[in-house]
Amino acid sequence: MNFFPDETGRMSQFDQSITDALIEQQSSIQAAWLATLEESGAVRGVRADELKKQTADFLKLFSEGVVESGGDYWGANGWAGTREFLEALSHSRALQGLDAQQTATFVFSLKRPLFDLLQRETSVPPASLVTQITLVSELLDMMGLHTVRTFQKARESVIKRQQEELLELSTPVVKLWDGVLALPMIGTLDSQRTQVVMESLLQRIVDTGSDIAIIDITGVPTVDTLVAQHLLKTVTAIRLMGADCIISGVRPQIAQTIVHLGLDLEGIVTKANLADAFALALRRSGLTVTKAS
């Protein structure tokens, strides 16, 4: 007996009377399924009408799959519609914040109603009944596993997106004056974070039409080679775009690193702190600050 059927192992076929019963008794199966789902408590947070539609849609696809594939292995073409449906379901449940167990129960709770159906179909000889029950059971197991797998994938992509959003939020580009942007960087810089932050700075320069960008690294304790190189590349990229860049707040350790690495700082304007950098930016913009009285 092939427990995990694949392309190589064809499973035994569904009995015709079972296939017919699946189609004819769809609504009573649905009712029994909904009751099981309710009992399991796996559908909290899902609207009743939504659930009704989901179960109906799934049963329709399921019986179509049985007809088309004849109970053939889960990877068969006949199950493509069911697979897509389950993937979409996992996706929406993952986004709704339901857990993997609740999502898998949607499929597993169909076992009992289907077993009941098989037992009611007295036209099936008892010897064949065992095969049929195994068949249904295996099929639903595969579906459940597929659902969990997709659910996992969906959750991972949600987490990945959140990480990216967090990354972009963690270092905001601020406007200091008309035409002057500042990027105050705080904390340890890794290569990826530097890259994302620099890209958003460059985009903001275009969006706001700012001539001068100040990158303040007062809050950065150390930089490694890659980050230092990124910083220098950003300065060059800003120049290519037609704006000027000032780096402020270079700590002694970072200055040491840059010199030690032999990185070329020629043509790069550095200032001791953000205030000095801002004063320079204003001067370059042709502005002076005077006391009001």
Partner: peptide, 22 residues
């Protein structure tokens, strides 16, 4: 464009001596 500028720098083409504006 920003993406073009980043790419050019990575490519190793800094265009020294070419004046630029936004």
């Amino acid at each position: 464009q920003p993406a073009v500028a980043i790419t050019l720098v990575e490519l190793g083409l800094n265009l020294p001596g070419v004046a630029t504006a936004l």
